[in-house]
Structures are given as structure tokens and as C-alpha cells.
Amino acid sequence: MPRIVRVVLPNYPHHVVQRGHNRQVVFAADYDYQRYLTDLRELKDAFGVKVYAYCLMTNHVHLLLVPGDSAAGLGQLMKALAARATRYRNRIERRSGILWESRYKSSVVQSDTYLLACARYIELNPVRARMTAEAGDYAWSSYCERIGQDTGSGLLDTDPCFLALGCDHDERCERYKSFVKQGMRTDEICLIRNALQRGQLTGNKRFIDEIELVTGHRIEQRGQGRPKKNIKK
């Protein structure tokens, strides 16, 4: 079966997932997580990529990334991150071999409709996995930094949809916290998950038409609706 052609566009957000080879553990201790985030902070600037959300799970990572004017920066970032983590793991375990799946998955995300929903999906991963009761209880996602509880990492870039939530940072944080507490509908989870698994677009028909115009290629449409805007302004 031929590989799905990856759609990567400059200046568009992309939901990215990379899994451990055969779903093996890639983060075994706190330092493993810390090291990956340190590398992400350094390499995102080197390759001109913004980070809007992240969640590091035991055997995979979720990232919401925006390449700059060069779409190639996204692939370069993911390749460099994977290589550093692999060298580190092989060194401490005195082994050689593969740490990650050979190909990460990605989906271009419609900003005005799905960007915050996708960030929420990423930051609620530990809750869906029943690792924590609330998003704020998990140490290795962007949630605490986004709402101002953890300002130490300085990893996140502020996305325009988050800025639109309020007139100041406190107001934005409170509205985003309420948005996350609402949780996600099953159909919304399925839409985001399926788009990622199939390498398709996370967006509505208007967005699909827009991307087809940009790329000059037909992109398969799926039955999908617009998620309800649950954030009250």
C-alpha cells in the first residue's frame, strides 16, 4: 500500500505525533522528558518553528507546530529531535538500534476553528489515558505553562487564537481553563484523531477547499462538522 502523501505548508499549524518503535517506552525517567523539552526549545529556534502545544507521553509525543516560511523546517525539526533522543537512549542503555517509528504523523490544522480544540486534545491526553484526573496534574504537557502556572520552560509561542480569548493574560487563562474543563465530545476527538491517522486535514470543507487551492492538489474530503464554540467571550 503506498504511503500517504504528507501535506506540510509554511505558516500553518500542524498536529504532529511521533511514536516509539513498536510502541516502546521512550521516556523512562523525569530527566528523559526534561531533555526532550530542552532539545525542542533549542531546535525550534534553529529551524524556525513555533510551538503552540505539546504533550510527552510514555511512548509517544504530541506537538502542535507551525513551520515558518520554509515548510522544510518541520521535517528537519522532527528528524533532529528523534536523532538526539535516539543517541541519548542508546548511550545510557549501551545499545544500538531504533527508538522511534520511521515516520511521524501530521495533519494541517485550521486555525480559526480547530486550533484551540487541537491544543485541548493534546493537553487532555493524560486524562483520556487515565494517568491524571485533570490536565493541570500532568507535568509534561504545555497546559500549565499556557495558563501561567509554570513559567520556567519558556517553550510555548503564543498563538493568535489564545490571544483572542481576552483582553489580558489572566482573562485568557481563565477562559482557556474553562474550555479545557468542558472536555471534548466524542465526535470532536474522532475527527482530530482520524485526520492525524490518515494524514488528512483537521478542518471543515471551506478549509479543505483553501488548502486544495494552495497546493494545487485534490485532498480527500470527509464528512465532518464544525465544532461548537464553547468558549464564551
Rank of each mutant, 00 (worst) to 15 (best):
Q200T: 12
Q149K: 13
D137V: 12
I231L: 15
M184Y: 01
L191E: 03
L163M: 13
L201S: 06
G73I: 03
I98V: 15
L99E: 01
D209V: 14
D170W: 01
R130T: 06
A71S: 13
Q221R: 14
R120T: 07
A83K: 11
G136L: 07
G183A: 09
I208M: 04
Y104S: 05
A83R: 11
L74S: 08
E145V: 11
L64F: 10
A83D: 09
R91W: 12
P13L: 09
H60P: 03
D32S: 13
V51K: 02
Y88W: 10
Y36S: 00
V8G: 08
R41A: 15
P67H: 07
L65Q: 00
V17Q: 11
L40D: 02
Y31C: 15
V108L: 03
W100T: 00
Q110T: 00
Y54M: 04
V25D: 06
R103E: 09
D32Q: 13
F27Q: 01
V109F: 01
M131L: 14
Q18G: 05
D168T: 04
A119R: 09
S96H: 12
D150L: 12
K233D: 07
A164S: 15
T158G: 05
Y54E: 01
D187R: 14
A72S: 15
N125K: 05
F47G: 03
A129F: 06
S111M: 14
L201W: 03
H62N: 10
V109N: 00
K44S: 15
I92E: 14
E101L: 09
R87W: 11
E101S: 11
L213I: 10
R175H: 10
L9S: 03
R185V: 07
E134K: 15
V51D: 00
L115E: 02
R130Q: 14
N230F: 09
H14N: 02
F162A: 01
M1H: 13
L9F: 09
D45G: 15
Y114T: 03
R35G: 00
L77I: 07
T215F: 06
T158L: 15
L63D: 00
V180P: 02
S106D: 02
G152Q: 07
K105S: 14
T58N: 08
Y31P: 06
R222K: 12
R6S: 02
E210Q: 13
A80F: 04
V25S: 03
I147S: 09
P67R: 08
K181W: 08
G75C: 12
L124V: 04
A53V: 03
E210M: 08
L56S: 04
S178Y: 07
Y121Q: 02
I122H: 05
A83C: 10
G97I: 11
I231V: 15
G223F: 13
C55T: 04
S178E: 10
